[in-house]
């Protein structure tokens, strides 16, 4: 059998590969279904539509704005955490210990991932300006951490008092020794 050219692809393949131009609403005259909006929403707008359209300066401003939002995000948790910590009491129970653990885990992870959190906003132009946002971010995480420390202290787990170091203090040794023979 001689080699034959493959059969032409089915029509749906062709249409999939080169979709027909979206018919303009006016052209198609077909009304949109109720509630459908042809305008793309959310991230699509940022990534798809605006990206090629914006100018670099405008993008950097947006990036900075976004970065500040992220930097300030932990501060929103502070009041909630403070209330939770206050309400959970100072006794050593499994729940309060777990909550305190979470309170420490979040900020420490946040601090470790500081650069990662701001990586996508980082361009040559924004690098200098991002420092402020990063500093605020770190500060906010530290405030959260401070909340945790305050809580641990309230629970009496911090060795801040004299009694916590008593075991390392030693008895004062007398230089002379007396032996008693009272009988």
């Amino acid at each position: 059998m001689s080699s034959k050219s493959p059969p032409p692809p089915p029509k749906w393949v062709v249409e999939l590969n080169s979709p027909p131009p979206r018919p303009s609403p006016k052209a198609s005259k077909i009304p949109d279904p109720p509630g459908y909006s042809s305008r793309p929403t959310g991230k699509q707008r940022v990534t798809q539509q605006s990206a090629p359209a914006r100018r670099p300066v405008e993008t950097d401003t947006l990036k900075l704005k976004k970065a500040w939002e992220i930097a300030l995000a932990p501060s929103k948790q502070i009041p909630m955490n403070a209330i939770m910590m206050y309400m959970s009491g100072n006794s050593l129970q499994i729940f309060s210990i777990m909550m305190v653990f979470m309170l420490f885990k979040g900020p420490i992870q946040g601090l470790l991932n500081t650069n990662a959190a701001f990586a996508k906003f980082e361009t040559d132009a924004t690098r200098a300006k991002l420092r402020g946002a990063k500093a605020v971010y770190v500060l906010m995480q530290l405030v959260l951490l401070g909340l945790g420390v305050w809580k641990v202290n309230a629970m009496g787990l911090l060795p801040t008092t004299r009694s916590d170091w008593l075991a390392w203090e030693s008895e004062r040794e007398p230089l002379e020794r007396a032996y008693f023979a009272f009988g």
Binding site: R162, S163, L166, A167, E169, S170, E171
Partner: peptide
């Protein structure tokens, strides 16, 4: 065992 007496307010 302990050279001090720990008081209620954790002082010694």
């Amino acid at each position: 065992a302990s050279i001090g007496k720990v008081l209620g307010n954790r002082s010694v």
